[in-house]
Simulated scan of single mutants.
Amino acid sequence: MATESMRMHPDIAELRAKYDAAAETSTAQAVDGLTFLTGLYLAISPWVVGFTGFTSLTGNNLIVGIALALLAVGFASAYGRTHGMAWVAPLIGVWTIIAPWVVSGDVATTRTIWSNVVAGAIAVLLGLGALSFGMNRMHRTH
């Protein structure tokens, strides 16, 4: 009962509305869309770039890419409810950058490294962008 009344509290509802308004800007929508595309690319990158021979890295990129794409969908559809997880997107980007060395150990191809480093850097930047939308909105309203 207390949880239900807390969820409907006017302050909580107002805060969610502010986050949702921040997510409705064209910049936020572009960041969410690009984050989604980055996640999709990351998921299919082993087949696009041609490093499916590294099975552990292939599995890693597939899982991490899907997770990033799902986060982007959450941000785009309900940022007021998912903004608390926005810190995960830049973390996924950092993981993507270091994964070729941590997961597969022996990275034999330059294209494997470039693919992950570039996709990871883009994910970090877009993730920081998604993280900043709620912060910027809150600073402007207080």
Rank of each mutant, 00 (worst) to 15 (best):
A2D: 15
T3L: 14
S5T: 15
M6S: 13
R7G: 13
M8A: 15
H9R: 09
H9I: 03
P10V: 07
P10F: 09
P10G: 07
P10L: 06
I12G: 00
A13E: 13
E14I: 02
E14H: 11
Y19M: 15
E24Y: 00
S26Q: 11
A28F: 07
A28D: 02
Q29D: 03
V31E: 01
V31A: 08
V31R: 02
G33W: 04
L34S: 05
L34Y: 09
T35V: 05
T35I: 03
F36P: 01
L37D: 00
T38V: 07
G39W: 00
G39C: 01
L42S: 09
A43P: 03
I44H: 03
P46V: 05
P46K: 03
P46W: 05
P46G: 04
W47E: 11
F51D: 02
T52W: 06
F54L: 15
T55K: 14
T55W: 12
T58E: 12
N60Y: 15
L62A: 14
L62H: 08
I63W: 08
I63K: 08
I63C: 07
V64K: 02
V64Y: 05
G65S: 08
I66C: 10
I66S: 06
A67I: 10
A67P: 05
A67D: 04
L68D: 06
L68H: 05
L70W: 07
F75K: 00
F75Y: 15
S77N: 10
A78S: 13
A78F: 10
Y79S: 01
Y79L: 02
Y79P: 04
G80V: 02
T82C: 03
M85G: 14
A86P: 01
A86S: 14
A86L: 01
V88D: 00
A89W: 02
P90D: 08
P90C: 09
I92S: 01
W95D: 11
T96L: 06
T96S: 10
T96G: 02
T96W: 05
T96P: 05
I98H: 04
I98Q: 06
I98D: 03
I98C: 04
P100Y: 06
P100I: 06
V102I: 15
V103S: 08
G105F: 08
D106Y: 12
D106V: 14
D106E: 14
T110M: 12
R111K: 13
W114A: 14
W114D: 13
N116G: 04
V117G: 04
G120S: 06
I122F: 04
G127K: 02
G127I: 02
G129A: 06
A130L: 08
A130D: 01
A130I: 00
L131Q: 12
F133L: 10
M135V: 15
M135N: 12
N136P: 00
M138K: 10
H139M: 14
H139R: 15
H139D: 14
T141E: 15
H142A: 12
H142D: 12
